[in-house]
Design a binder for these strands. Structure first.
Lengths: 216, 216
DNA sequence: AAAGATGCTATAACAGTGTTATTTCCAAAA
DNA sequence: TTTTGGAAATAACACTGTTATAGCATCTTT
């Protein structure tokens, strides 16, 4: 057993721990998506990975710590979904595509979305650090807003604060539609949710980020 | 003891039951607003009104039944807040005032709002009947939208479906802003939430319910 | 190599939850 | 007065998050 070789014993053990941790989170994530947030109990997870609850507590501290990890996973998935949106085309269309990807993520990963943005877990409030991670997802939207404004306008026309505000308004729009949809407040025969969201976004964008008149 | 007089014994008992029921709901509502949804346990309520949990179960069936009543209470409070908004002035301003009242209600009665529109109670899904009560709150907004469109436009221009869709879009806008605010996703120094909401609503209204050019 | 120290894990316990079966008890009817 | 009916309190069951205890295997030291 080499005491200070390439693979120290402690290092190997730590590596093993990390993989174990990842495996546990994978299983927990599966359970979450299969049976929802109420099925997420420490005992249930423990028996799922065939261990005692004690190891969960030594690994994650408490349930809040475990949910924190899921929270971060959710934002990681959201980030990937957002990064996959092609940036080509008109900046406005990029904003629409971004929002559509967000909308799609929220509906397909409803349980994750509920943890991230609705406060569905009782007594779970994300830590300040995690909240900051959440706000970082806004950066893509902020950049898109700035790209939307710069080409024909004076570069200094949109301040950082203004770009943030517009991005936040757009975010609230999508969040509102998603929220009502997930809460079950839906329903008029013949109107689709995508359609409504698109109309709302177009109104916002065309009013707050007006396209200059086409060059004649 | 008159068997079929004005005050039958059973009637008196039923009346007493109803007042008891109301009293229990009052206390439960206080507890909810004082300590939040996680404090709402059957045992806690029982000891609050000095009775056993059994009477709660014979009265409300189960916790879902009790929360259903709170759900209805919340919508009743929301309806009162909305009805208190004066209808005079421009229809557009009425829409803004309506949304401001909604926004204010959501922030001051955050726990109620969470029960009504976020799915904060685990495994609580409002019954179909209750969902319909919720959608009925939209009627005020729908009427306001129609009033906003009729004066200068052809009365037949806005169909019922179209009015519903626009009202629903406005609702989603307010809901989105409220939701992000309640979830803690707020924060740029110097921008207020009222300000952002007003901008978003103006964009929506002016784009979807355009005011005709003022008479010169 | 044997003995002691260390740290990790399973078991079991505590306090709390929703819900229900059992018992107890009091009031109405015969 | 006795019987009977229904309502309410008690206690139990199966859960939850969390933690103290105890056991066991490993590493360190002599």
């Amino acid at each position: 057993m080499p005491k200070n070789g390439i693979t120290n014993y402690r290092d190997a053990q730590d590596l093993h721990q990390q993989e174990l941790r990842k495996g546990i989170l994978d299983d927990t994530s599966d359970l979450l998506m299969r049976e929802g947030t109420t099925a997420l109990s420490m005992r249930r997870i423990a028996q799922l990975v065939s261990c005692s609850t004690t190891v969960l507590y030594t690994m994650f501290g408490n349930k809040q710590g475990l949910v924190d990890e899921l929270y971060l996973r959710g934002f990681e998935m959201l980030r990937q979904a957002i990064e996959a949106v092609p940036c080509s085309g008109h900046p406005q269309d990029y904003i629409y595509a971004l929002c559509a990807a967000y909308h799609n993520f929220a509906l397909t990963h409803a349980t994750y979305y509920a943890i991230m943005f609705l406060k569905i877990m009782p007594d779970y409030t994300p830590s300040k650090e995690n909240l900051e991670v959440g706000e970082k997802s806004l950066q893509f939207l902020i950049k898109a807003v700035q790209d939307c404004a710069t080409p024909q306008t004076i570069p200094e026309a949109i301040s950082e604060s203004e770009a943030w505000e517009i991005a936040r308004i757009i975010w609230a729009t999508v969040h509102g539609h998603v929220g009502l949809e997930l809460a079950g407040h839906f329903g008029y025969p013949g109107v689709s949710s995508q359609q409504m969201l698109k109309r709302a976004l177009q109104a916002i964008v065309e009013q707050l980020l007006p396209t200059p008149n086409p060059i004649p």
